[in-house]
């Protein structure tokens, strides 16, 4: 029993890591008032660029850097369109997802070695492996927390840091003000566009890192649609966490946990059909969204940043 729990916890954390990176990234972006629906495309691009890099260079660090750079480039496009050009953010985000999905798949068929018909699919590269922390990793059940790869350990630090930055620092206060009331922020001397650029790009970087975790650790290698819709689940997780980085962990663990249990069930050879089990995370996503919307109508103040997805223009006549 203990072994089973430990293994579920271990898989939960591993599955949750990429979700947490992307959720925290998107929370920061949305807190500045920018809705980025390009997550799915950015995660896929992060995953493919990271895996291609690690395959040819063997350097995990370099792979992470390349993935981050991919995130910077894609989210800069979104930032430019939605902040400078004041385009419709839903359209811009969706086009980044469409582009990212297609282009990642294209790269997956072109970046590979000639011996594999230029395909990346089916190749094996360097990957992050669990690092045991002495003593702590021997704890019953909870030991699973301390037998993870480096990217998961970083998550343990990122969550409290992201919370502290948002609620306890001057920059965090500015960020929240820009998303809630850009007019006020502007009148108080905060550069609204600059803040939105910074956090849209920072968010995109974290999202791409989430993608890289998939191809470097969770399911090492490259397959088409390696994210399995995680980019969309993250959108729901942001709402579930009520735009608070410290709550990102619960949503990510819930969905990671559903993944883990579903694997376990399939491994035990249950009679429930596999497609039905695979649907589980998505069904829970819908249920969570309905629930949150319901709570929001009951109590107005759960709310999304007031200026989310609204372009800002100074009110000269």
């Amino acid at each position: 029993m203990i072994a089973l729990l430990a293994s579920i916890l271990a898989i939960t954390l591993r599955a949750g890591t990429s979700l947490i990176y992307a959720t925290i990234g998107e929370i920061y972006t949305e807190r500045s008032g920018i809705l980025n629906l390009g997550l799915e495309g950015m995660m896929l691009m992060g995953a493919v660029s990271a895996f291609a890099t690690v395959y040819y260079t063997g350097s995990l660090l370099l792979a992470l850097l390349v993935a981050m750079l991919t995130g910077v480039v894609l989210s800069s496009i979104h930032a430019f369109l939605s902040i400078t050009m004041r385009a419709n953010q839903v359209v811009s985000g969706l086009s980044i997802t469409l582009f990212g999905t297609g282009f990642a798949s294209f790269l997956g068929q072109r970046l590979g070695p000639e011996s594999n018909g230029h395909y990346l699919i089916g190749l094996i590269g360097n990957k992050f492996t669990p690092v045991k922390i002495p003593f702590l990793s021997n704890l019953p059940v909870l030991g699973a927390l301390f037998n993870q790869d480096i990217l998961t350990y970083i998550v343990y630090l990122i969550i409290p840091a992201a919370w502290f930055f948002m609620y306890k620092t001057r920059a965090g206060l500015n960020l929240r003000a820009v998303g809630e009331s850009p007019q006020t922020a502007d009148a108080m001397g905060i550069n609204v566009s600059k803040v939105r650029y910074i956090y849209t790009i920072l968010g995109g970087t974290l999202v791409a890192l989430g993608g890289a975790h998939l191809s470097l650790s969770y399911a090492p290698g490259w397959t088409d649609n390696i994210t399995g819709g995680r980019g969309w689940i993250v959108i729901a997780l942001v709402i579930f966490s009520m735009w608070n980085p410290s709550r990102a962990i619960w949503g990510a663990l819930l969905f990671g946990g559903i993944n883990a249990i579903q694997f376990r069930l399939q491994a035990t050879g249950t009679t429930i059909s596999a497609p039905l089990l695979n649907m589980l995370p998505y069904i829970v996503t819908i249920v969570v969204l309905v629930l949150m919307t319901w709570i929001e109508t009951m109590n107005k103040k759960v709310g999304a940043p007031e200026a989310l997805a609204v372009p800002y223009m100074r009110g000269e006549k």
Partner: peptide, 19 residues
């Protein structure tokens, strides 16, 4: 139209944007 962020406290609004 007051330049205040409705979801924030008085103290937070007072120091908003102060370097």
């Amino acid at each position: 139209n007051f330049k205040l962020v409705p979801t924030m406290s008085v103290a937070e609004n007072v120091v908003l944007g102060l370097d």
